[in-house]
Simulated scan of single mutants.
Amino acid sequence: MMIDRIRREHGYMIRLLAILENKVANLKQGQSINYSLIKEIVDYLGDHSERVHHPKEDLLYHYYLAHYGEQQEIENLELEHQELSIKTHAFLDVVEMILKDAVVPRDLFLNQLEDFLSAQRKHLQLEERKVLPLICQQFTVEDWQTVESQYSASEDDPVFGETIAEQYIQLAQRVRIADDEVS
Rank of each mutant, 00 (worst) to 15 (best):
S183Q: 09
P133F: 03
K28C: 06
H81C: 01
Y64G: 01
H53K: 04
T140P: 06
Y68F: 11
Q112P: 00
A119F: 05
L99Y: 06
S49W: 12
V159K: 11
M97S: 15
V175K: 05
L132K: 02
N22V: 03
L77N: 11
E166Q: 13
K87D: 14
H81S: 00
Q120R: 10
F109G: 03
Y151Q: 04
V103A: 09
E142Q: 15
Q170G: 13
Y12D: 09
N76A: 07
R5I: 13
E128Y: 06
L110T: 08
M13G: 05
L132I: 15
S49E: 08
E83A: 04
H54K: 04
T140H: 03
T146P: 02
F91G: 06
A90Y: 09
I164R: 09
E21H: 10
L117S: 04
L16C: 10
Y63D: 00
L77M: 15
I3R: 04
Q125H: 09
E80Y: 01
I14A: 11
N76V: 01
H53Q: 04
A90M: 06
I169H: 13
S152G: 06
M2A: 06
K28P: 02
E181I: 14
M97A: 12
T140K: 06
E128S: 14
V141A: 11
E57G: 02
E70P: 03
E128F: 06
H81W: 01
F91Y: 12
V103T: 11
S118W: 04
V95M: 10
L171M: 13
M1G: 07
Q167W: 02
L108K: 08
G161P: 05
A119T: 08
S49G: 15
Q167K: 15
A18K: 11
Q170T: 13
E80T: 06
S152Q: 12
H48L: 05
E21F: 02
L117R: 03
R106H: 14
I177P: 02
L45K: 09
V141T: 13
D93L: 03
I74F: 01
K100E: 13
E78Y: 04
R7M: 11
N22R: 12
Q167L: 08
H123I: 09
I169R: 15
Y61S: 01
K87S: 11
F139Q: 08
R129K: 14
G69W: 00
L108D: 05
H10D: 03
Q29M: 14
G46Y: 12
G30A: 07
M13C: 03
L92Y: 09
A178Q: 09
M13R: 05
A102I: 05
N34S: 13
S85I: 01
M13A: 12
Q72V: 07
D143V: 02
I164M: 10
F109Q: 03
